[in-house]
Design a protein around this nucleic acid. Structure first.
Lengths: 330, 330
DNA sequence: GGACATGCAGCAATCGGTTGATTAATGATT
DNA sequence: AATCATTAATCAACCGATTGCTGCATGTCC
């Protein structure tokens, strides 16, 4: 681990450490002559500034944190991919942590982020999160937090969300357009604001444009629950003629049930979901879905973060627009 | 960002910085009396040692690097989850980077790892990787590298692999037991050692136990290629009666083709794969697969890393055993 | 009472950079 | 020749924690 340091460079060239430091930074005080000499030696010796020393002195870590419930999830994956890409382009490194939907792990991770002095944090809160003080601690230290996707239901934070209401509305409208009469809407954890918003918008759209539709709502939280709920309801009488799935997990469970019961999509039953894009394309016919791009979300969130880092931006809520991708399942 | 520091503590208590530092570390030179006073104040003021200062002084970053081709992949996800869990328990932080299967990004990331002074690295090499010097640079700096899954075909490295040959053999044996006559084997990128090993073992098993089997081999690299290849071959005459899919991507493509052609699994065609576990369970009947657990791999790799970090362990190759999970598709 | 061991705490250098203040050298001005 | 501006490089303090060495009290023993 024989790193070359400013000291080593300065000794070789017989000049002072500070001159070397400034030469490498193109400081106007240093002559062109010296600059080129220093730079040449620096590349020759593969000089790399010691991150920890720089951070200690400047208090600039160039580190951004990402906190998500879990990374084994295509939505967050594409989000992370987008952020990481932009971060690298802007000279930031990224530290990723998972809360696993436990408030306790979330708090521990926030602590680690602080300890590592991230300059900003992207966070999607866990299902359990009720107390926002651990997040506030970051803000107290002037570390901007940009909430994404699953955001806190509190004012005064930077938030970048999917157009949740819009996405649910688009899905509802698509169902209405197909003149479906008995609709099953499956949503995620009822505690999350994202669920509440989508569910409310979904119901509202039906009330407004097709009040006679028979709407059944349920909240399965896992693939298995979704499977069970779907099987139960699809086996019952007055089977729905369309199912809306709020997320991939639910969709997977529903499709399993549909195959199990040997129902034909879309003739026996129409299916529509909200998804990042992979899973709906695995089925035949492909599932019609409202796209919620983690990638776009990441790009937008990063832009938001940059403006936070530059000036003390006022809290703002931004949304990623939704798009209906027709797949033939409705 | 008003962190409390040793200096602040020392000023409050009216003792020197070094005494505070030693008190917090239970150094024998310090009296119990002082120790308790210091510790109380430390917790009261939420003192946290500054990571960067500690690292600068001690050259211990307690950071581990993980380099994988991509994180949007259930196998690597579960691997990362396992490593992260163990790392946290042992007081390490984890820095994750993706090579996106580009040698250039891989090298850039390795550079970042060095810059951040990771104490050890887990790496799954990219498809493009031919030159191992960027990895060697880490080893030169005494940073242990544990290769996982997609390992270098070179001696002298720590490697933790799936039992690739074994997994392919188990799959082949399962196919043979079902007395299938015309088998299509689909493998991944032919450049990777993992592909070569699995393919060789697969063929070998047939030659040994069922030499009369008609074996067709292909190497689709993406979902779409897999879809195309499967459609083409399944539409041809002398349709295979069993398909082996080396990975999830291939399986997804194959299943799409099978549904498209309205073939019945397992009556018209048997399917078996190698997988981490999620995708095979999405279909009905569930796909029979040889389990290759990213989670177990992670646990094993971390253990290996720990022993590397402790003593200068001799290079060693470890494998995760494989397990056949019957799903009804063969 | 003097020599010595022991307990407890402080001094100061160090890790590798950064940066404001300062010095030295050169040339221009009067 | 003395003064001043300009350029180019050095000095030295600093970020926060660690650690070898030193120094001061006490207490003990002969």
């Amino acid at each position: 681990m024989q790193q070359s340091t400013l000291k080593k460079l300065s000794e070789v060239l017989g000049i002072s450490i500070s001159t070397v430091s400034r030469a490498l930074k193109d400081h106007p005080d240093i002559s062109e002559n010296t600059k080129t000499k220093v730079k040449e030696l620096a590349t020759a010796l593969e000089y790399e500034p010691n991150n920890y020393a720089v951070q200690l002195r400047t208090r600039q870590s160039n580190l951004l944190g990402i906190l998500v419930p879990s990374i084994d999830n295509f939505f967050y994956d594409s989000f992370i991919a987008a952020v990481e890409e932009d971060a690298r382009l802007h000279g930031y490194s990224v530290m990723i942590m998972q809360s696993r939907d436990k408030a306790q792990i979330e708090t521990a991770n926030l602590h680690l982020f602080r300890k590592n002095m991230v300059m900003g944090l992207f966070a999607s809160i866990s299902i359990e999160t009720e107390d926002m003080t651990p997040f506030r601690k970051l803000e107290e230290q002037k570390i901007p937090v940009v909430f994404i996707d699953r955001v806190a239901e509190v004012e005064g934070y930077h938030k970048v969300c999917l157009a949740d209401a819009e996405a649910a509305r688009i899905a509802a409208e698509a169902i209405i357009e197909k003149k479906k009469k008995r609709v099953l809407g499956l949503f995620g954890h009822p505690h999350l604001s994202i669920t509440k918003i989508r569910c409310a918008s979904f119901k509202e759209t039906f009330e407004k444009h097709a009040p006679k539709t028979k709407l059944t709502i349920d909240y399965p939280e896992t693939i298995n629950e979704s499977k069970r709920v779907a099987l139960e309801i699809l086996k019952g009488k007055n089977r729905p003629d369309a199912i809306f799935c709020m997320g991939d997990q639910i969709l997977i469970g529903v499709m399993y049930a549909i195959h199990k019961l040997k129902l034909k999509v879309p003739d026996d039953i129409g299916v529509i979901g909200i998804s990042n894009g992979l899973f709906p394309t695995l089925y035949d016919p492909k599932i019609t879905y409202v796209e919620t791009s983690g990638f776009k979300l990441g790009k937008l969130a990063f832009a938001q973060m940059l403006s936070c880092l530059r000036n003390d931006h006022t809290p703002e809520e931004v949304t990623v627009e939704s798009l209906l991708i027709e797949g033939g399942s409705l």
